[in-house]
Simulated assay, not measured.
Amino acid sequence: MLEVVNLTKSFELHVSQVGKVYPIQGLSFHIRQGRFLGIAGPSGIGKSTILKCIFRTYMPSSGEVWYDSLHEGRVDLAQADDRQMIRLRERELGYVSQFLKVIPRVPAVDIVAERLLPLGWSQDDARREAERMLERLRIPRKLWQAFPATFSGGEQQRVNLARAFIVRPRLMILDEPTASLDRETTSAVIEMLQAMKREGTTMVGIFHDWDVMEQVADEILDITLSGGGTMRPKPAAAGAQAE
């Protein structure tokens, strides 16, 4: 489903004598359909940079990111044009960041429902589906018509998750999705991720909580200080071994 080949990302430091830094350099890995790859490593080593290069929030400096698209065929996300990336994000790619970034003064239910409109859903049907998703993620009904800017950090993250989950993407990218959630909501998110994986969704993500990582990941990619990585199955005690 996803194959990353010799991925490198550099950043220019204009206010430093260092010049360029390379958080990711020559990284390669692949993920089969319906599998979950967790990425582990020290803080600041470039884990989020990998995810942003896949989703094309960042343009990779070099390398290839091959994705087997249902609608577009085999696509190198590192080279795809902006229109193609927009289509893929609408139809097939999901991304959950650590923070919710949405248009102010829009009710939570509409923020979630609008993800379904490009897929041909009517406004009424999309809102009903959004309400079901908000309920599953334990957002109180009284907040459905409120603005997420007034929510707590945990409530905002649940809206963030609802926006991603509602379209059931083929490839889900997760950047510490449970960092601000309580234990009960984290358990609900884990159940939803496991259900999506059973339905064939492929996932790649990072988690601040190693226990959560081991509950959802089939394999874990350890990132080294050199920007490379070592793939290994998750521990047997945490679940089945990877294929």
Rank of each mutant, 00 (worst) to 15 (best):
V4C: 05
V5K: 15
V5R: 15
T8N: 05
V18C: 00
K20Q: 06
H30M: 07
I31Y: 02
G34S: 01
G34Q: 12
G38I: 02
A40D: 02
A40C: 07
G46Y: 09
T49G: 08
K52C: 01
M59G: 05
P60V: 03
S61P: 06
E64D: 10
S69D: 07
R74S: 09
Q79C: 02
D82I: 12
M85I: 15
G94R: 06
Y95I: 13
S97W: 08
K101T: 13
V102Q: 05
D110H: 07
P118M: 09
P118D: 12
E131Q: 10
R132Y: 00
M133A: 03
L134F: 01
L134R: 07
L143P: 01
P148I: 07
A149Y: 15
F151H: 11
F151V: 09
G153P: 14
Q157V: 06
R158Q: 10
A162Y: 03
R163L: 08
R163T: 02
P169N: 11
M172A: 12
I173C: 06
D175S: 03
D175H: 07
D175E: 03
E184D: 14
T185F: 08
T185D: 04
M196F: 10
R198Q: 15
E199V: 08
H208Y: 05
E214C: 14
A217Y: 03
D218F: 09
I220D: 05
L225D: 12
R232P: 04
P233K: 04
P235D: 08
A236Q: 13
A242S: 15
